[in-house]
Nucleic acid binder design. Sequence first.
DNA 1: AATACTATATGATATTATCATATATGTGTA
DNA 2: TACACATATATGATAATATCATATAGTATT
Lengths: 126, 126
Amino acid sequence: MCRTCGCSFRSRDFGNIERFIEPCILLLLSKSPSHGYGLIEDLEKHCDERVDIGYLYRTLRRMEKDGWVESDWEENEAGPDRRTYTITQEGKDFLRTAATSLIRTDKLIQRFLEGYQKNYQNNKNV
Amino acid sequence: MCRTCGCSFRSRDFGNIERFIEPCILLLLSKSPSHGYGLIEDLEKHCDERVDIGYLYRTLRRMEKDGWVESDWEENEAGPDRRTYTITQEGKDFLRTAATSLIRTDKLIQRFLEGYQKNYQNNKNV
DNA sequence: AATACTATATGATATTATCATATATGTGTA
DNA sequence: TACACATATATGATAATATCATATAGTATT
């Protein structure tokens, strides 16, 4: 149930990028190393969505524990120092696996949408 | 971390139907009322995947609490009685919302896959 | 009587996601 | 100098989602 207004719509949103955050992060890092705050901005630019910043930082630490990324502190004269993340070989391998999974997800969603639109055209009031 | 073998691959799978289980159930129920065990088989047929049966039952009860479906016991001479679920108007409304979200998700995934394949073609070893 | 299939349900726990808040550096400005 | 603001990382508390195992029971088959 939605915590904000108590309605029956779950806070869970089937369209949010959080559900695919790891592959998206890995894809960005496969282009060039980056840090948490930078990734937030990249994700927003690419996905038109502001990811919860606390969740992103925790996700990055978890991904490091999992061996998909590595991090080092980078000095930053223009502001606070940054923890810069680099993708590892394991991370690249996982990215490939995730891409395969997402191809499958994409097919599932398209199958769903076809079924839905078919019902809609048949005037089934759905 | 994967509980079965302890590897760093999360049990979380970006391709599984559990991530879109509610819209899929609602779509099936919008065609005709059904019961848990029947839905499991339908989902397997449509999505080539066996959903965890305990999870499905709990999801159905949650959806009922949320007002998306209603249930009644139906006598079954050929086996144990069945709890038959029917979609409500609220469920139909949510199905429409979910479809919109999934169109967005589909676009996000395709954008991701385009980016990924572009990297792959450029021989970036990802 | 034992086994298999159908059918629903829940205990225990792990994982994922959200919301709020703490801390600190540098820049601009009142 | 004091303050607000953007950048930057982190974590406490809690809610929501997902997994795995197990319990219970009716009907059919061997």
